Each structure stands twice: as structure tokens, then as C-alpha cells.
Amino acid sequence: MTLRERGTGDPAPRELAADLVVDATGRASRTPQWLAALGGTPPAEEVLETGRAYASCLFDGDAPPRGLRGFYIVPEATAPLGAIVMPVEDGRWTVTLSGPRDLAPPNDPGAFVEFAHRLPHPAPHTWLSTAHPAGRPVGYRHTANRRRRYDRLGRDHGGLLVVGDAACALNPVYGQGLSVAALTALALSRALAAPRTPTAHTLQRAVLRAAAPAWDVATGADSPMPGATGNAVRTGPTARLLTRYLDRVRAHVPGDPVVCTANRDVLFLLAPPRTLLTSPRVLRRTLLGTPVPTPRDLPTP
């Protein structure tokens, strides 16, 4: 392995012998380019780009009206703007607004609050209008779903293990990155605890499996988005039928606690995506029930 030290007066590269190299450098990992430069085979990539953008900001403000712990508006094809308002420490709230890149949330506090007026429900803007920003919003534009298939490289790359966003980067608007990191750590821990020492290839497959549910959720939600591109976009009759069903699931989320809980557990990786299709209660309520929309007026104290 060739290294070049940063922050020193000597930029000359040096060699470091290693039995295993772990790449945890994140979404901007350059391992594919380095493999190609060494004459090796870079991994195949699965990509789904929706061109989404988001911005986050901390606010000081009173708690929402009784019964509400925050706001969560999930973007979808017909309503591509989203919002998450959640309490954090010291009585503050973290607010994330998202939208297509040509309708990106601004980084100016006043414009940020005004942007919330465009959301499909007025509650976040109503609350933000009474809160006070604790700083400037910070925007983010690199939101493509990208999975690098190091698991397919085989034994020729037995001394390399790629983890985290370097292996599978998800649209961060769904907030799954840290959960995937924790699931990956558990998967690697189980593999390493086996009686027989696993190969790097076995560990790489464990990394892929740990991230698979989140990948299915993110790409499933992003595929119907306007302008979605890439070889991981789901198309065809089966994908369209699944999208229609999931649209019905989301329509029932605001007013049906059973469907809402099931959808939340899948989105937050507490349950596998198939539970939305295999639970008799969720199927019955989704296909036979009448959706109850979220009231436009907030509950009064």
C-alpha cells in the first residue's frame, strides 16, 4: 500500500505493508480510481440520481401543539418537497427541508423559513414562523444513491474491504446512513465471531447484505421521482405496480396508525421492506380502506 502523509514537509510517498486495507473514506472514496490505476478492475456501480437537494438548520422555539413531537413530510413524485422537524438537545430543533435541485432550499434563514410555505402541509411553516434560527442553514447537493459492487470482484481483491458510504451511499434525505453503519458493524461482528476466520470477500458480502434493506427503500422511493436517472432506476410493469401500491400505503399513513407504524418501521430500518406486502393487516387497510388525510389545522392546546 502506498501512502502520502498530509500536513508534513515531506510529500514523498511511502510503502506500508498490510494484510487488509479497509476503505471507510465515505461517498467520495477514490478506491475505484486507484484500483484502475494499479491495473485492477474497479467495481461495477449501481446509480440512481434524482437531483435532490436539502438544507438543515437549528432553531430555538416552543414545542409544537399538544400531541405533536415534530413534523415529517416524506417527498414523493407528486409532492417532491419534504421536511423533517425534530427536537434535539438544549431545547432546540433541527429542521431539514428538501426538494429538487432546481428548487433547492435556500441557505438564508429568512428565505429558508419562507421556503417551508411551499410544503404540501402548512404545519412546518406555521411553526417555523414563530421560531428563531440558531445559525445559518447548511445545504447539501450530493444525494445520489450509489452502490459499488466490491462483492463481485472475487478473490483477486482479498486484501481489501470497503465499508460505509464508500460501498453503498444512500440519498441522505431519508436519514438512514448511521443506521446502516450500525447494522454493518453488527454484521461484521457476527462474521468475525464465527469459528472459522472469514475472508475479506465474505466480509464484503456481509457489508452488502447489511445495507440492502436501506438500498431497497431509498431506490424504491426515488425511482418514481421526476427526472430520476441511472441504471438502478426501477422500471417495467412490476415496478409500476409496486409504485401504485406504495402510493396507496403513503396515502393511508396520515390517518391509519397501523399502516403508519408499518411504513415508519420500514423507512427507519426496524422492519424489512417486504412487511408492507406480507402483513395481512397492512394489505387489508391499504387496499380496502379509505385514506384519511392529515388535517390542515393543527390541534389547539
Rank of each mutant, 00 (worst) to 15 (best):
L119G: 02
A53C: 10
V95P: 06
V217I: 12
G227Q: 10
L283H: 05
L103C: 14
A187H: 09
A212D: 15
F112M: 00
L283N: 14
T294K: 11
A144T: 14
T300L: 03
A37F: 05
A18K: 08
D10H: 05
A28G: 11
A104C: 11
C57D: 15
A77R: 10
D165T: 05
L3G: 04
L242A: 15
C57G: 11
D19A: 15
V282Q: 14
G99D: 03
T238C: 02
A166F: 07
N145A: 14
A18S: 08
L287N: 09
P293H: 10
G227R: 04
P237F: 01
P237A: 00
A182N: 11
G227C: 06
R234D: 01
L97H: 00
R14Y: 12
N231H: 03
Y245A: 08
G91E: 14
L288Y: 12
L246N: 08
Y72G: 05
A44D: 07
M86W: 07
E114P: 01
L97V: 02
G220T: 00
G82T: 11
A187Q: 11
P87C: 01
A185L: 12
L288M: 12
P43K: 00
V162E: 00
D62E: 14
P32E: 05
A228I: 05
R146G: 07
